[in-house]
């Protein structure tokens, strides 16, 4: 067939980017907080902050997906755990189960610590509900650790899912490669570190957490560094390869939001700030807080651009994927349809 057309999609847009961002961030938060609490430094406040934030994030993220479903009632088919037997090849099946069970186990894991906190027990409604679960606080430590690990496993699953979801779409070179899950995993943990740094600096504010903060900063610097390397790999992959990847490259590397916004302010600037913090240290918390905010913004931008810049190749112009179909103008052999201006 002569001539191919390249087009981006308008099916999964910003709301999926939010879903992927909050999913990855929330999943990584649970993993990091539980592991920190169990193996690095017992920190009940951190667990409560991380796991409840994660709960809120996943609720918001899942709500984004739910609101955009065409048939809301049919969601029951993926909430039913039997979906893993019926459709084990679909990552949304796994993802939904991971998310649901991560939310459940992370909250169960946090319950004993919430029961110890007057803020929560005296809160109307929540306090009453917590009272019903007082028995969870009396479970032996080993059971509590098992619950923690259940949360961790489902958290890792959630993080992995956010990357594998895009990887499962074979028509788009940008998505259909093992770099995507890797990138999303690294980014998820990096944004989670950033979020926890914000919590430690702005909410918990304990001097005794200094070492933990330094540890998170160091890890985050490493993760951002790896993320930069992966982005370079993607630069190479998209620029010198399949035509649809090159179309993606043409979109990404011509967009200041991607270059300056994501790579500049989402990766390089926070990398430099945190690098200096790790090597020489800062006198105040402000630079690290700034870096953390930048990392979080970058985390969203990454997913935003990944959903928008995925480019399909087709032997005919797109219809469904772009809302305003236009055939105006002479059709040349290769037509580049840029992403919609909706973003």
């Amino acid at each position: 067939m002569e001539g191919m057309f390249y087009s981006t999609q308008n099916v999964w847009t910003w709301w999926i980017a939010i879903y992927l961002f909050l999913g990855g961030l929330g999943g990584a938060l649970v993993v990091i907080s539980c592991l920190t609490h169990m193996y690095i430094k017992p920190h009940k406040q951190l667990v409560i902050w991380a796991n409840l934030s994660s709960f809120v994030m996943l609720s918001v993220g899942s709500l984004m997906l739910f609101l955009h479903l065409l048939d809301h009632l049919a969601i029951i088919h993926v909430l039913n755990p039997m979906v893993l037997v019926n459709k084990p090849d679909a990552w949304i099946s796994w993802g939904t189960q991971f998310i649901v069970w991560m939310m459940v186990w992370s909250i169960v894991y946090s319950l004993p610590y919430m029961l110890e906190t007057k803020f929560w027990t005296k809160m109307p409604v929540v306090g009453t509900i917590l009272g019903l679960f007082a028995w969870v606080g009396n479970l032996p430590q080993s059971i509590h650790n098992i619950i923690g690990w259940l949360a961790i496993i489902n958290g890792i699953g959630t993080v992995l899912y956010t990357g594998l979801l895009l990887q499962s779409f074979p028509a788009v070179a940008l998505w259909h490669n093992p770099g995507v899950p890797l990138l999303f995993i690294v980014s998820a943990f990096s944004t989670a570190m950033a979020f926890l740094l914000l919590v430690l600096y702005l909410a918990i504010r304990q001097d005794e957490d200094h070492e933990l903060r330094v540890f998170y900063e160091r890890t985050d610097v490493i993760l951002i560094g790896i993320e930069l390397l992966i982005i370079f790999v993607f630069f190479h992959f998209t620029t010198y390869g399949l035509e649809s990847a090159r179309h993606t490259a043409a979109i990404l590397w011509d967009d200041m939001g991607w270059i300056v916004g994501f790579i500049g302010f989402g990766l390089i600037v926070p990398f430099l700030i945190e690098f200096r913090g790790v090597t020489k240290g800062w006198n105040s918390a402000a630079p690290v807080v700034l870096a953390a905010v930048l990392v979080l913004s970058g985390g969203y931008l990454l997913r935003h651009y990944f959903t928008y810049a995925g480019s399909y190749e087709r032997p005919y112009p797109a219809v469904n994927s772009i809302r305003q179909h236009s055939q105006a103008g002479p059709v040349t052999k290769v037509v580049a349809v840029m992403p919609s201006t909706e973003r």
């Binding site: 999609q9 099916v11 999964w12 997906l65 955009h68 479903l69 065409l70 048939d71 809301h72 049919a74 969601i75 088919h77 993926v78 679909a90 949304i92 979801l165 499962s168 779409f169 074979p170 028509a171 399909y312 190749e313 087709r314 469904n320 994927s321």
Partner: peptide, 11 residues
């Protein structure tokens, strides 16, 4: 349920 993953996957 209309999640549209199929629309994303279809080449």
């Amino acid at each position: 349920m209309g999640c549209r993953a199929c629309a994303m996957a279809c080449p």
